[in-house]
Amino acid sequence: MLKRYFLKAALGAALFAGAAISAPMAAHAADDALARIKAAGVMKVGTETAFAPFDFIDAGDHVGLNVDFFAELGKDLGVKIEWVALPWDGVFPALEAGKFDFVAGPATITKARLERFKMTAPIAEATVAILKKAGDKTITKPEDIAGKAVGSGKATAQFAQLQEYSKTLPKPVEAREYVSFNDAYADLAAGRIVAVANSLPNIAYVAKQRNGAFEVVTPAFGKKSYFGFIGKKDEDSKTLVDYVNSEVIKMKKDGRLGKMQEKWFGTTFDTPDEVKEPAF
């Protein structure tokens, strides 16, 4: 009876799905990741748009140091940059699944990440410090957060640093994970947490943007670390990673990176050309 029609329709659906799948497969014929990007004329970059001033949405426009950097890279390589914005904890799984060619982020260069991914030369310093509510006299130095509620981003190296630092304190901090740092800043403003642990360039920017609301607590408590962009470790991505890396070095030498740092952080960073042995 009606089952025969069901079967026919199912067959049709399967054929349609097959055709839809085979199209993107054909694009994989070229040599390697870099060659395919050149051939397609598009480089897909994955990122999280809640990481000011590297990557954020300013009244509807996607801006930040990442956007400026990859715009320059796209010009040099002669390709268009296509952005894919995901929550941060979804970015690395999506990179491994091949949803995009590179990750902007940026991410702190850590030992664990180097084991799984390739990271470019540093684009900024990433050392972690504390952001507090302006005028909070109970926190004047990093160790004052002992026993208090402190927020950080989920699946971030900054959160790991906070937990590690917490162990060295007389009383552990109540570490809270947030989907994005923006949510942590909002809870700091609302008084649900007393501090946010994030990298210096980020919190310096936030303190400046929300003038008067937040303050950075110096010195930084984390170990000295750096931000880099992230690519895949496989053979297929080797030339692509090398290329992005050479672009970082090139822009550092010709002053373009310095200008971007000046524009987004109000200061420049002295970063090494390579991080062989991350501090953690």
């Binding site: 994955g46 748009t49 809640a50 000011a52 954020f56 949405i57 300013d58 009244a59 509807g60 894919v84 914005a85 995901l86 929550p87 979804g90 999506a94 949803k99 994005s180 923006n182 949510d183 800043y185 909002a186 929300r210």
Partner: peptide, 23 residues
């Protein structure tokens, strides 16, 4: 669907709220 990279109404609201501080 914003978890797979689509900017729809909720995601746009979150992005705007965090950049304008007008949640």
């Amino acid at each position: 669907v914003s978890v797979v990279g689509i900017i729809e109404l909720t995601k746009m609201a979150q992005d705007l709220a965090s950049s304008t501080y007008l949640p």
